[in-house]
């Protein structure tokens, strides 16, 4: 059989992709396969959603089908629908499916604790707490560097934030 791409060399590489149950087969020669490999970086064939549904639908055991029937009480999305599309229905879904989502989030993101920006109004004292944590880390660092002038400055800032946090909690 000849390579489906260049139609010149003998096809000795066989690529099968199964995405959402749809099977595609390609027969290529080594050269073209290598070239294709270059493009596979950008290929949609393995988008996140495809991979996710692969992770979520490994086989059809009874526990999986029970899981699929789980439903978000707020928006009505079934867990099974999420595992097909990778898209949740509402913010509440994160709580409703938390047990199942947590390991998944860890797998995708490598972490399950937010470290970044906190909305000013909605975040409450979390914003101050994060700032406080950063200052404390910085303090440790400047002490290690024996930069005591800077350390004194940071310490004052930390006291001030602690005061603010304390008064907000009362």
């Amino acid at each position: 059989m000849l390579c489906q791409n260049c139609e010149q060399n003998e096809a000795n590489v066989h690529i099968t992709r199964i995405i959402n149950g749809e099977k595609t087969e390609v027969f290529l020669c080594e050269e073209c396969a290598e070239e294709k490999g270059q493009f596979s970086l950008e290929s949609e064939a393995f988008s996140f959603q495809n991979l996710l549904s692969g992770i979520l639908n490994p086989d059809v055991s009874s526990s999986v089908s029970r899981e699929a029937a789980l439903k978000c009480e707020n928006c009505g999305l079934k867990y099974g629908e999420f595992s097909e599309t990778g898209i949740l229905g509402c913010a509440e879904c994160y709580d409703q499916f938390s047990e199942r989502l947590e390991p998944l989030i860890k797998r995708i993101q490598g972490s399950s604790q937010h470290e970044g920006k906190v909305p000013k109004r909605k975040g409450g004292d979390l914003r101050l707490r994060n700032e406080l944590n950063h200052l404390r880390e910085e303090l440790d660092q400047v002490i290690a560097e024996e930069n005591f002038e800077k350390a004194a400055e940071l310490r004052d800032q930390i006291y001030e934030l602690e005061d603010r946090l304390g008064s907000e909690q009362k």
């Binding site: 996140f48 959603q49 990778g86 898209i87 949740l88 989502l101 998944l104 989030i105 995708i108 993101q109 972490s111 937010h114 470290e115 970044g116 920006k117």
Partner: peptide, 8 residues
């Protein structure tokens, strides 16, 4: 909507 964009 998609867990790949969570967090920041």
């Amino acid at each position: 909507a998609c867990p790949t964009n969570l967090g920041t």
